Simulated assay, not measured.
Amino acid sequence: MSRPVPDKAEVALEYPDKFYVGTFEHSSRFEARLDGSGVALVLQHPGAADERKSVHLHLNFGLLAGILRELAVSVAALPKDDIAHREQLADALDELRRALRTS
């Protein structure tokens, strides 16, 4: 089930001969789910054919775990007085941890 993007995402793809960049904000939607081998993430911006865009990303569990560990190492870069974002992230991780333990 897709949901409205609650904040903002920026995506950039760089190839030797091409560069693509896109922003997904409140008018966009996202879907994230676990499957048998990892997490699938879809970002979609609806609209007319010349405005529509989507990004589909799949990360295997090992890579996702590595990303989460790297985020933990870099959390010091988040200002200590940025309580709102710290709580947002902590609450989401608590919810994921509870779901992993009870499934």
Rank of each mutant, 00 (worst) to 15 (best):
G47V: 02
S28P: 01
K53V: 02
E51S: 12
A32D: 04
I83P: 00
H85W: 05
V73Q: 12
L89D: 02
D82F: 05
S74K: 15
V55H: 00
P46C: 00
L34E: 13
G47K: 00
A92Y: 04
P4F: 07
S103V: 11
A76K: 09
A49F: 09
G38N: 02
R29G: 00
L100R: 10
E31S: 15
Y20W: 15
F30A: 04
A65P: 00
V42I: 12
E25G: 11
F24Y: 07
A9E: 09
A84E: 11
S54M: 12
R52F: 08
V42K: 14
A76W: 12
D17T: 14
D91C: 10
I83S: 09
P16D: 12
F30N: 01
D35R: 08
R69E: 06
G62K: 08
K80M: 07
R98M: 09
I83Y: 12
A12I: 04
N60W: 01
V39W: 01
D81S: 03
L41A: 01
H56M: 05
P6G: 03
K53R: 06
S37T: 11
E51Q: 13
V75Q: 14
S54T: 07
H58I: 04
L68T: 08
A48Q: 03
G62I: 00
P6D: 03
S54D: 09
A48M: 03
A12L: 05
V42D: 11
D17M: 13
V75M: 15
F24S: 01
E87N: 04
A77H: 13
V21Q: 14
G66N: 12
L96R: 05
D82A: 10
K8F: 04
G22T: 10
A77L: 14
S37Y: 05
A9Q: 09
R69F: 02
A72H: 08
R86A: 10
G22P: 03
E10L: 06
P46D: 01
E25M: 05
D35Y: 08
A72W: 03
A77G: 07
S2N: 14
S54V: 03
V42H: 11
F61I: 11
E51V: 07
V55I: 02
R97M: 08
D81F: 00
S103G: 12
S37G: 06
R3S: 13
K18Y: 12
D7K: 10
N60R: 12
E87M: 05
R86P: 03
V11Y: 10
R101L: 15
P4Q: 06
E95M: 08
P4R: 07
V39K: 03
E14T: 15
G22I: 05
